[in-house]
Design a protein around this nucleic acid. Structure first.
Length: 440
RNA sequence: CGGGUUAUAGCGCAGUUUGGUAGCGCAUCCGUCUGGGGGACGGAAGGUCGCAGGUUCAAAUCCUGCUAACCCGACCA
């Protein structure tokens, strides 16, 4: 993509509505634009990141055996009256009436709707286990939206719902999601830590929050430093194998959010106890028959008995992750995208558009990248050099290929790695090699 | 939902105390120069001063009401 053909509305100054880094950087780099409090339009750069996060999430969900569907944003009130959450949810729920005065709502979550789909279509244990998920916009009328897309009112979320014949089987479904979450967050270039979370009225230990570490996180978190080495535990795992032992191993290390923190339990941990701040990017929990009972979602077991199905739900904050990833990956000059979610793989910067040689070499590299299906943003504008380089740092793609008049004279060009800020000098041929080795 | 703050050009701001020609920087457009870290000079365009009332010869400025947005708390993926 040539920058002169693209839509990238950058901001030089800090927008006054933004306070935290990720919000400032998202607005400055033209990723999104606020429409109302906590509601955003996604501009091209932001949309690309959103799509990448969504794809990584879906791929891992599919790998775990979950099946994608799509439920609507608008839901009928009846289902929520059935589960008795229509009252319980309070003002956070955006309620709507259509022209026939029918009561509707903009869904803040989908337990009721999925339970309705399930009970209308599944009656036998033979169809279980089942895990259905979708990625859809949600709306929660937060009292105070803040932190840009990390705490918006409208947000994109992946939510999955599992159905099982028994508590034991439900735990297996839960374990699959636990593993899937560890893997998918890691694939986004993050270091997730699963932490015991509050389970609410159900009890038991079947609820975990997935936290990424960040100074600007909303809540205090405590964990055993050794957990950082445990990330690879799930890398080569077979979803059909016994996941319990892996999870037992992982959860034997201490990790808790502020609400769950108990200093007494940290006395004998193996590594150092880390106290820091975290951002919740995922949450999984088993809630058994909480919705299947009142909504009469029953299945017939082997013995011919009808019983309410055992359910769990599993959320990934897709739009929140865009902000979260930036919180975890930036410096004073801008964003530092992990390769996996970067909107483009590299910036190609032509420092002097009036220099024919520069243009020729830049075009060669541009065409090469396009042929190799490498997503490159070619800065072919007539901006000043400083402006171009500053912009490249701000939007923060993994690599910057810099073509200048000095370089064309000596066949000596530069590639800057954004993460390390290290610049290496390469001939044109070596540039092609570098691209092949690092960007394909 | 309590407490605080803000609203003036596309963006960031001054001007409001003490009423009297609508300002600055960046961005934009035209031109010339420049060319390795937001470059320089010259010119141009851009406004219902959040909205509605009121006071006054005269309101961005004073008064009343409303709205929107942000920050701190309590609450959430």
């Amino acid at each position: 993509m040539k920058l002169t053909d693209y839509f990238l509305p950058l901001k030089k100054d800090k927008p006054k509505e933004a306070e935290i880094t990720s919000h400032i950087l998202m607005l400055r780099s033209g990723m999104c634009q606020q429409s109302s409090s906590g509601i955003y339009s996604w501009l091209p750069l932001g949309k690309k990141v959103l799509d990448k996060i969504e794809k990584i999430t879906k791929d891992e969900m599919n790998a775990s055996g979950a099946i994608e569907i799509l439920m609507p944003t608008i839901q009928p009130a009846e289902l929520w009256i059935e589960s008795s959450r229509y009252q319980d949810y309070g003002k956070e729920m955006l309620r709507i009436k259509d022209r026939n005065k029918k009561e509707l709502l903009y869904g803040p979550t989908n337990e009721e709707l999925i339970t309705d789909i399930f009970r209308n279509n599944v009656q036998s244990y033979k169809n279980l286990p089942l895990n259905l998920y979708h990625v859809q916009w949600k709306f929660r009328d937060e009292v105070r939206p803040r932190f840009g897309v990390m705490r918006g009112r409208e947000f994109l979320m992946k939510d999955a719902y599992s159905f099982d014949i028994s508590e034991d089987n439900a735990k297996k479904s839960y374990n699959k999601m636990f593993v899937a979450y560890m893997k998918l967050f890691k694939k986004m270039g993050l270091s997730p830590i699963a932490m015991k979370a509050e389970t609410g009225p159900i009890g038991g230990d079947l609820s975990h929050e997935f936290i990424i570490i960040s100074k600007t996180g909303e809540s205090d978190v405590f964990f055993d430093e050794s957990l950082l080495d445990m990330q690879k535990l799930f890398d080569e795992i077979d979803y059909n194998g016994d996941l319990q032992e892996y999870i037992n191993k992982y959860t034997s290390f201490y990790a808790a959010t502020d609400e769950m923190h108990n200093p007494k339990e940290t006395q004998n941990i193996s590594g150092n106890l880390i106290k820091t701040k975290g951002i919740e990017v995922g949450h999984i929990f088993h809630f058994g028959q909480k919705y299947s009972k009142p909504m009469n979602a029953t299945i017939t077991n082997e013995k011919g008995q009808n019983l309410p199905v055992f359910m769990g739900s599993y959320g990934v904050g897709v739009s929140r992750l865009v902000g979260g990833i930036i919180e975890a990956n930036h410096d004073e000059n801008g964003i530092i995208w992990p390769k996996e979610v970067s909107p483009f793989m590299c910036s190609l910067i032509n420092l002097n558009c009036d220099n024919e040689k520069c243009l020729e070499v830049s075009n060669q590299i541009y065409n090469y990248c396009n042929k190799k299906m490498i997503d490159v943003l070619f800065d072919d504008t007539k901006e000043s050099i400083g402006s171009k380089l500053t912009t490249a740092d701000l939007i923060g793609f993994p690599y910057q290929v810099i073509i200048g008049p000095k370089g064309v004279k000596n066949d000596n060009f530069e590639i800057k790695t954004r993460k390390t800020n290290k610049i290496i000098n390469l001939s044109l041929n070596e540039i092609f090699n570098f691209i092949n080795e690092n960007m394909v």
